[in-house]
Amino acid sequence: MASVTADKTLDTSGLNCPLPVLKTKKAIEELQSGQILEVISTDPGSKADIPAFCNRTGHELVETVEEGGKYIFYIKKK
C-alpha cells in the first residue's frame, strides 16, 4: 500500500509501451505544479519507461509500488 495521496489517477492497465508513457505525459500536463499523479500499469516495460520519463522531464518519481501484477507509480509534477 502506498504512503502517497494522489491528486489524479491514470489507469493504463492492459496498454503496452509506449501508451502508458504517452498517457502519463498527457495526464501530467493537466496537473498543477506539486500535484501527484498515480499511474497504474500492467506493462512490465513501464518499470523502466516511467522512471526514464521522469528523468527526461524533471518530474519527481515519489514512489513505486508493485502488487498483484500491477505497477503503480506516483509522480510529482515539477
Rank of each mutant, 00 (worst) to 15 (best):
M1G: 13
A2S: 15
A2Y: 02
S3Q: 13
S3V: 11
S3G: 10
V4S: 04
V4Y: 07
T5E: 15
T5K: 15
A6E: 09
D7G: 13
D7T: 11
T9K: 09
L10D: 03
D11E: 06
T12F: 05
T12N: 04
T12W: 02
L15K: 11
L15P: 00
N16I: 12
N16A: 10
P18F: 01
P18Y: 01
P20C: 05
P20A: 06
V21R: 00
V21C: 01
L22Y: 02
L22H: 02
L22T: 04
K23R: 12
K23V: 00
K23I: 01
K23L: 11
T24H: 01
T24F: 00
T24Y: 02
K25G: 03
K26V: 12
K26S: 13
A27W: 03
A27H: 07
I28C: 05
I28P: 07
E29L: 12
E29R: 13
E30R: 13
E30F: 08
L31M: 14
L31Q: 13
Q32M: 14
S33G: 09
S33W: 09
G34D: 15
Q35C: 12
Q35Y: 11
I36Q: 07
L37M: 06
L37S: 03
E38V: 05
E38R: 09
V39T: 03
V39M: 04
I40Y: 07
I40D: 09
I40P: 06
S41R: 03
S41H: 06
P44I: 11
P44R: 11
P44M: 13
S46H: 01
S46G: 04
S46E: 05
D49V: 01
I50Q: 03
A52M: 06
A52Q: 06
F53N: 01
F53W: 08
F53Q: 02
N55Q: 12
T57M: 11
T57V: 10
G58W: 13
H59M: 10
H59R: 10
H59P: 09
E60K: 13
L61M: 10
L61P: 06
L61Q: 07
V62T: 07
V62N: 01
E63M: 06
T64G: 04
V65M: 08
V65S: 07
V65L: 11
E66M: 14
E67S: 15
G68N: 15
G69H: 14
G69A: 14
G69F: 13
Y71G: 08
Y71A: 06
I72W: 05
I72M: 11
F73I: 05
Y74P: 04
I75E: 03
I75G: 02
K76T: 02
K78M: 14
